[in-house]
């Protein structure tokens, strides 16, 4: 170590100092995310996996008749996109978003870096919101990539024929594209809610594996509960119900009530998860690292 003039016993610029704002914290979180192999691989996966699925399903001699839109999927690109959508909403979307969100806080524990960042000039709450925003945006980007890749591959590989709706009505290709895109867009609210759930588990468990697996398992359990009979009272509160709200868009007449309910329940789930996560982080003693 060589000579130094770094000590500044009384820096003249003390008054000009400002603590780090939310923008700086977001920039920092984004940089870390971009540098991680995991997040890049995930985006590449959401781009390529739908293409592979469309190729494989499209090549089947007998279409998957039991699934919604399965019957027409091998001869209609719009039906194919909706088949993949139904499949993705089972557990793939919660998993995709949880891979980043479930790690967002726990990775600081894993690397012991809480003390590194919290001894700078950024408050816990700024860092918290930066992580939340970056995780949510990443989840939405992954959704957009997945949707675009699925719709693009389906239309290119299977084709753009008029779509038969859920009430048997025929939907022209132009209108069908809009409805398919809108159907994918209805995934956003529950996706955000699953992101927030993953963030909560990440903060609370301090363990990335739990942060990633817990939302997926919870999603599967809710799916199972939702498929049981006699649970109409709790169905609106399940986080998996909004994943099916798009069905109304493809019925005749169209109905959007479930979508609005889904937005509401997703908002409640998101808000509750974030408040809990914030309180845990806020009051936590950083003793590790």
């Amino acid at each position: 170590m060589t000579a130094s003039t770094l000590a500044s016993p009384r820096p003249s610029n003390t008054c000009a100092r400002k603590e780090a704002g939310l923008g700086s914290a977001i920039l920092w979180e984004t940089r870390k995310l971009r540098a991680q192999l995991r997040s890049r691989a995930l985006l590449v996966g959401t781009l390529l996996a739908p293409v592979a699925v469309v190729l494989v399903v499209g090549a089947q001699s007998r279409p998957p008749k039991d699934s919604l839109f399965g019957r027409f999927s091998t001869e209609n690109g719009f039906a194919m996109s909706l088949l993949v959508l139904g499949f993705a909403s089972q557990w793939i979307l919660p998993l995709v978003t949880a891979i980043v969100a479930g790690d967002a806080f726990a990775s600081e524990d894993q690397h012991g870096t809480w003390k590194t960042v919290l001894t700078r000039s950024v408050s816990r709450s700024r860092l918290f919101w930066a992580k939340v925003l970056v995780s949510v945006v990443f989840g939405l980007v992954a959704l957009v990539v997945l949707a675009a890749a699925t719709i693009g591959a389906s239309l290119l590989i299977v084709g753009r024929q008029p779509l038969t709706g859920l009430s048997g009505q025929l939907i022209e290709p132009g209108a069908a594209l809009g409805l398919v895109a809108a159907s994918w867009a209805t995934m956003a609210p529950p996706l955000i809610a699953f992101t927030c759930l993953a963030l909560l588990f990440s903060v609370w468990s301090r363990n990335a594996a739990v942060g990633i697996a817990a939302p997926v398992v919870i999603g599967m359990v809710m799916q199972l509960v939702g498929s049981l009979g006699g649970i109409e009272a709790i169905r609106p509160y399940l986080l998996t119900t909004p994943f099916e709200a798009w069905h109304g868009l493809l019925a005749e007449p169209r109905f959007t009530g479930p979508i609005l309910d889904g937005v509401l329940s997703s908002a409640v789930w998101s808000g509750a998860s974030l408040v809990a996560a914030f309180l845990v982080l806020r009051h936590r003693d950083i003793t590790g690292g």
């Binding site: 700086s24 914290a25 540098a35 960042v117 700078r120």
Partner: peptide, 28 residues
């Protein structure tokens, strides 16, 4: 620093420092 200093292993030394500088706010 407290105990042994910890950094992000997947970032370079420079990237770590640049990131921490972001968190130091402005005026430095």
């Amino acid at each position: 620093f407290i105990e042994s200093p910890k950094f992000y292993p997947y970032l370079t030394g420079r990237q770590n420092l640049e990131g921490l500088r972001l968190l130091d706010g402005s005026g430095l």
